[in-house]
Structure formats: structure tokens, C-alpha cells
Write a protein that binds this DNA or RNA. Sequence first.
DNA 1: CGTCGCATTGATATCGCTCAAATCCGGTGG
DNA 2: CCACCGGATTTGAGCGATATCAATGCGACG
Lengths: 198, 198
Amino acid sequence: MKCSSSDIPTALRSAAIEFSHPRGSYIFRTGTPSSGVFFVTCGEVRLMRRGRQGEEIVLHHARTGEFFAEASIDSARYHCDAIAVQPTTVLKVSAHKLVRLLAEDPQFAAQWVSLLSGQLRATRMRVERLSIKSAAERVRHLLVTNGTGPRCEVQVRGSLKDLASELGLSHEALYRTLSTMQRDGQIERHGRELRLIR
Amino acid sequence: MKCSSSDIPTALRSAAIEFSHPRGSYIFRTGTPSSGVFFVTCGEVRLMRRGRQGEEIVLHHARTGEFFAEASIDSARYHCDAIAVQPTTVLKVSAHKLVRLLAEDPQFAAQWVSLLSGQLRATRMRVERLSIKSAAERVRHLLVTNGTGPRCEVQVRGSLKDLASELGLSHEALYRTLSTMQRDGQIERHGRELRLIR
DNA sequence: CGTCGCATTGATATCGCTCAAATCCGGTGG
DNA sequence: CCACCGGATTTGAGCGATATCAATGCGACG
């Protein structure tokens, strides 16, 4: 089980406390006084709200390496539920510590702004990716925008099933798309590494 | 033509310069040294990149009241093109002024973090919305997450065609979906106002 | 070994996209 | 004042891509 806690500013790391949550447990609930920002070091968290008829409205999926509830410093209470979809460990940073760091440590403030800006940019790219209709074009978009080097290499995090859900596809559709693209000479696949050809 | 410049911290407003761009003109180009962050006070801007075969990859649409290139303080050059899709006026804040403000004005830093957090949250919701397969469920998700009041009212910005593209649907599909939902008593429509029933 | 989850491929159904045509509406110019 | 025009809206018909259901192989892990 791969775990990571990269991309977390060191100033925050020292202020953080680690928690473990079994699959299906609540990390926080709607209406609870907001206690801070969370980093997923391992696992997966779903942020959701319940509609009037009790239907689920998913607001966000936070996966390993991502953070969530970063807006909790702006509101006194959480306005959604956070549920561990997998066995999950999170780092929690209290809101007031974050606020104090932002106010007192300009260097940290810059880091935090950087982090938010980067996430925003990445998320916007995801939006554009998801508004592409063709499955093959989505994969291509992922490689072009997230790939490194001249060949647009991408190391798939987790399983192809995870990648499929990130791309908004059924896993079957992704499998099929990848094999056709490979057969047509559009991409190369070696293990969980994807490369663009041409 | 409605124009607004709300949501812009006053500290920024004074550091900003206004520019007007006719439809189709470039606000900046890929590779250009990054000169700052932009707010759309009127119009619409498309951020795009060219793929390896010259195909267009749209990264983001910034509309009236939104900002873009907020990550330009982290990179020396723009890595996409910004094109005015409509006649557009923007406020431009230079990166170094923004950085200085962040370092020297803790109150402004907090505002900026707030702004980024809010945009990030909204964009994440859009991601979840776009990964829903059913058109009706996308509309419902929009109403529940963006609606105000007990009835989840939403004032459509611009045309229904614009809404369709925001929802990742063809405009025909959106028209049909809205009428079926209305016929089935799921929503109400009055002009460009949408409401959820029940 | 047995089980569980991922990966893969097949068959079928369905929903939304595309093309097409008609209407409506606001604005513009004569 | 009215005719005209362009864009938005609406509805129809047919098709195609992806979801869904299903079955199988495979590897890890207890």
C-alpha cells in the first residue's frame, strides 16, 4: 500500500496530526465546527452532501497526495460530509494554526498560495479534459497536459480503474481505448507507464 | 453588456491597470514572459494550448468576474495562450506587485487565499458534475451545489447554450433535458431562472 | 489452494451527439 | 413602422460511442 506525504510545506507538517480512518467512517460531518485542513497521505476520501430526498451529491474525491477542506478557514462549520472510501490516513492541520502561519510567515503564505494556484490550474485542466467527448482524446489530453519530457510520459498512480474514474470513463472503456491507441501506434505502454508517440 | 468587478480585493484594484481587447485578440501567448494576473471585468477569455498535431486544447474559460493566470507568479513564462472570445476588458496586476502585497499585507494574503480556495472548491464541484453521466443528474447537481435558498434557485448567466457548454452537453441535449425535467415536475423554469421542486 | 480484486474482452442497450429544419426574439437599417 | 438578419431556442430522426452486464484469466495474499 503506497503512501506519500509529498507537497506538504514543512511548516505545516510540523503542525499536523495524523489520523487513521477505516473504510466507511466519517472524517467530519455537515454542521460540525470546522477544525482544519486535511491531507490524504493514503487512501481516498469522498466529500458529499445529501439532497432533499437523501440522494448523494458528491462534491469532491480527494486521493492520496491531495488535500481537502482547505476552505475551512473561511467558514465556522463544515458544509459537507467527509467519508473515507478506503482505509485512509490523513494529516490534519488546525484552521487557527494555518491562519496564524499565513499571517506571521510570509514565506509560508507564498508557499500556500503556490499550492492553491497549482491545484487550481490542475483542476481546471481536469475540467477541460472531462468536457472532451472522445475517450481517446481524453487520454491524449492527459498525456499532453500531465506528461513529462518530449514523449509526454505519465506514471499511472494506482490502478487503471482509478485512472478510468479520474478520466470519467468506465474501466472497460479505458481498457479498450488504451489497447486501440496502442494498436494504432498512438501510445506506448510499459507496465504503468504511458507514452505518446509522434 | 453587463460588467462587474466584484470580488476583487480593493488592495488589488489600486495596483491594477485596465486593458481592453477586441474579440479574437491575444491577451498573452505561450512562451511570453509572464507579466501578471488578470481579472475579467467584462467579456470572456479562453486559455488554450496547441497539441502536437496542432489541435486546440482548451484549458479554461474565464468569464466576467473571474480571474486567470493566477499561477503566473510561480512561472517565468506563460504556458498557454489567452484569447478574448468576446470583446473583453481585463484588470491586470503585475506578478511582483502581487507577491509584494502577499508578503507585506497579511490581510490581503488572507483574502487572496480565500479567493483561491473558493475558486478551487467551485472547480472541484464542476469536476464532479462533469463526471456524472446522466444529463438530468448534471443539471440537478448544478442546482443543488450552486443554487440559493430552499428551492435551489439558479440564475443562468448568459444563454442556455453557454450553460450547456459549462455542463459539457450539446445545447440540444440541454434543451431536451430541461423540458423533460420540467414536464416530469422536477424543476421550474421562469425565464433564465431555474428552480428545483421537492 | 481459495479468494479477492484488477485486467481484459465480448455482446447488447442506451443516451447524447450530429445533422436538419422551424420558430422566436432582439436589434438594425431602410 | 416594418422588413430583415443573426443568434438563441426548440423539436425531430438516426447513429455511434460509451455504459452496462457478463465471463474469463491472472496475480497477490492469506
